[in-house]
Amino acid sequence: MDLRRVSLILKLLSLGLPPDDYVVAGSGPLLAHGLRDEIGDLDLVARGAAWKAVSTMAVPVAAPSGHGRMVVLADGQIEVFDRWLPGTGDPGRLIESAERVQGIPFCPLREVLGWKERSDRPKDRADVELIKDYLSRADTSSRDA
């Protein structure tokens, strides 16, 4: 899938954020790896210049998790957080561990798996199974190579 043809990704790229200062979290990595054909919104974790930029686009508010602040953009289709979910650690580490898919920084699927398992929300359970299956196939392929 060409991510640059996905409406949400086009909206993200139109923000002009420095890619070394944010990472796509939430379900975005499932889209990037072809595990989902569509998602409802994009969640980003931002720091430094990226956080400063989004903070000029809308007023930061308390995150629903009660952990940090967020900026809501594109009529709610893009949510930018200054830290991710409780228990995920330092936002800088999350950003530094990003995998580039078509030049866009995404959280590694193993990270996504961890927080979706911890959240254990009904909407995350299907994603957990998709990620486990994908990682299992990827591990088998790398052993066979």
Rank of each mutant, 00 (worst) to 15 (best):
A145D: 11
R121V: 02
D124Q: 14
P18Y: 01
I39R: 13
V72Q: 05
M57K: 13
P122M: 09
S119N: 14
G28H: 10
P108Q: 10
L31M: 05
L130V: 05
D139H: 12
L31W: 04
G48A: 15
M1P: 07
T56N: 11
W51H: 13
Q77K: 15
V45C: 08
A74S: 15
S27D: 12
V6S: 03
E96V: 00
W84N: 12
L135T: 08
R47F: 03
A58D: 00
D41R: 08
E99Q: 12
S136C: 06
D41C: 01
V61E: 15
E111S: 12
G89I: 02
G68Y: 03
G16S: 07
A126G: 11
G114N: 14
S14C: 10
M1T: 09
L13D: 11
F81H: 11
G103Y: 07
R69A: 07
A50M: 01
V6A: 05
D144E: 09
D144N: 13
I95S: 02
H67R: 14
L94Y: 02
S65F: 01
M70I: 14
I39A: 10
H67A: 15
G48L: 00
C107G: 11
D90W: 05
V61S: 10
R4W: 12
G89W: 03
T88A: 12
P60E: 14
T140D: 09
S7T: 14
L13A: 08
E129V: 13
V24G: 15
Q77C: 06
V112G: 06
V61G: 08
A126N: 11
K132P: 07
R110H: 04
L15F: 00
L94K: 02
D2A: 12
F81R: 09
R137W: 07
R83F: 04
R93S: 06
I39W: 07
V54D: 05
P60S: 02
A50T: 13
P122D: 03
R69P: 09
D75W: 07
L10E: 13
P122K: 14
S142H: 00
A126S: 09
D2K: 02
A32L: 12
E111A: 07
A49Y: 00
Y22M: 06
A25W: 04
I95E: 02
R69W: 01
P60C: 08
G89K: 00
S65Y: 01
A53P: 03
V23I: 13
D124M: 09
Q102G: 07
L30M: 04
Q77L: 03
I95D: 02
M1E: 12
V72W: 01
K52L: 12
K123H: 06
A126W: 13
L44W: 07
V128C: 07
S7Y: 08
E117N: 08
R137H: 11
L113P: 02
D82H: 06
D2L: 14
L15K: 15
E117V: 14
D2M: 13
T88M: 14
S141K: 11
R93L: 00
L109H: 08
D144K: 15
D37P: 11
L113S: 03
P105R: 06
A53C: 12
S97C: 02
V72P: 05
L85D: 06
A145K: 04
A138H: 06
G16T: 15
V59F: 05
E111V: 14
L10H: 15
A32T: 00
A58C: 14
A74F: 05
P105I: 03
R125F: 01
V59I: 15
V54N: 04
